[in-house]
Design a binder for these strands. Structure first.
Lengths: 97, 97
DNA sequence: TATTAGTGTAACCCTTATGGTTACAAATGT
DNA sequence: ACATTTGTAACCATAAGGGTTACACTAATA
């Protein structure tokens, strides 16, 4: 397992650059398609909020992807953040087998 | 992508049956090793709380696994719950390409 | 049998997350 | 010049996460 050195891209950034912009969609328009408020989607694409399981399901329907695609990106992002927020977890010793 | 028919096993159940019990550990003991409260771990192994990124890092150190192992189990569980909690997301239409 | 260790969980605290509405200033497009 | 789009603040409500203390219950053991 390679350790990730740089902060993984936030899934909101991917959503914006790889989906919204290439398709010339608006944030407002996509929010309507997804059935969520404009604020909720705006915070995601500006990388201030997370992809929740419910949002992953909506995105998977809208863009014919798997919900896992979005949740894995979010997981990688969250994991990196947790690993760098504190060093506490590094003090955990391996359990003797 | 196969659709999961039954609720995926909660990672807390796996932790209890595949790690704690085979190693004859106690919940209290493992909580101490992990550096979290007994309550926090107890709620997880009784499937009343989630594996957070921080907890996944601690478990990965204790049991020499990847943190992704635990987070993927949690993701599958959460995704199944979200998909069955409401049908709203099913109303989302695919975006025209 | 009396005692101890381990457990599940309630009650309580505090902090953070999620998502909605409304409103407004700034930017962009026609 | 006007309309659309945007980011985000302010505000609300609900839920999640984790800690402490306390208590009743179970299981093992001196």
């Amino acid at each position: 397992m390679r350790k990730r050195l740089r902060r993984p891209t936030h899934p909101g950034g991917i959503l914006r650059r790889h989906y919204i912009e290439p398709l010339s969609m608006t944030v407002s328009g996509l929010a309507a398609v997804l059935g969520v408020s404009r604020k909720t989607l705006s915070e995601i694409v500006n990388e201030h909020a997370s992809i929740t399981p419910d949002m992953a399901l909506r995105l998977s329907k809208a863009f014919k992807t798997t919900p896992e695609l979005w949740l894995n990106m979010q997981r990688n992002y969250d994991l990196w953040q947790a690993a760098h927020k504190s060093d506490d977890w590094k003090l955990v010793e391996a359990v003797a087998v």
